[in-house]
């Protein structure tokens, strides 16, 4: 029976950040590309927080493949539907992830994909409705980095 020593543990986990909680950053970091993207998306509309769901794992086993789903409650009719949902990862080298473009034929404003997260960070989804209003939600994902590679 081998008890792993502290040295072995540290060496095996080298490059592995222990899961940490980032201090929750203000939703818009001033002057960043992230902020620019959100501003451009929202235009002149007021951004309302909530009214949009972002489903992400609390802890991602690997930042290469993090499952992500967004959904916005809407009748999805010609007159009243969700037009776009943009997803941004605040702590990635480039914040852009994906923009979903819905139509009244979508039936629902729900979509899923898998994303890359470079580290523990906030993921933000911004939705624009057909009446021009904008909603926003953010969620923190802890990313397990390193561990056993190979």
């Amino acid at each position: 029976m081998q008890q792993l020593t502290r040295r072995q543990m540290l060496a095996l986990g080298s490059g592995a950040a222990v899961i940490t909680m980032l201090p929750v950053a203000p939703i818009l970091a001033a002057g960043s590309e992230f902020e620019m993207r959100v501003k451009k998306f929202a235009g002149t509309a007021m951004i309302r927080e909530g009214g949009i769901e972002l489903d992400l794992p609390e802890i991602a086993e690997n930042g290469n493949t993090v499952p992500m789903s967004v959904s916005v409650g809407s009748p999805m009719t010609k007159a009243d539907h969700v037009q776009q949902v943009m997803v941004l990862a605040e702590g990635n080298p480039l914040p852009g992830v994906i923009t979903f473009n819905f139509s009244h034929m979508s039936g629902s404003a729900e979509a899923s994909t898998r994303m890359r997260l470079a580290k523990t960070q906030n993921v933000v989804a911004v939705a624009r409705m057909s009446d021009g209003s904008v909603r926003m939600v953010k969620s923190v994902v802890k990313v397990t980095i390193g561990g056993c590679g190979g």
């Binding site: 290469n64 493949t65 993090v66 789903s69 999805m76 990862a89 990635n92 480039l94 852009g96 992830v97 994906i98 923009t99 979903f100 473009n101 819905f102 139509s103 009244h104 034929m105 979508s106 039936g107 629902s108 729900e110 979509a111 899923s112 994909t113 898998r114 994303m115 890359r116 997260l117």
Partner: peptide
Amino acid sequence: EFNGATVFSCDIEPAVSANPYLQFTAKI
């Protein structure tokens, strides 16, 4: 597209994982 009309689309950036997976809905 469904019968020539766009139902759903997306603009994808490099932060989408390898072998991209997309799930969405359509009203028939």
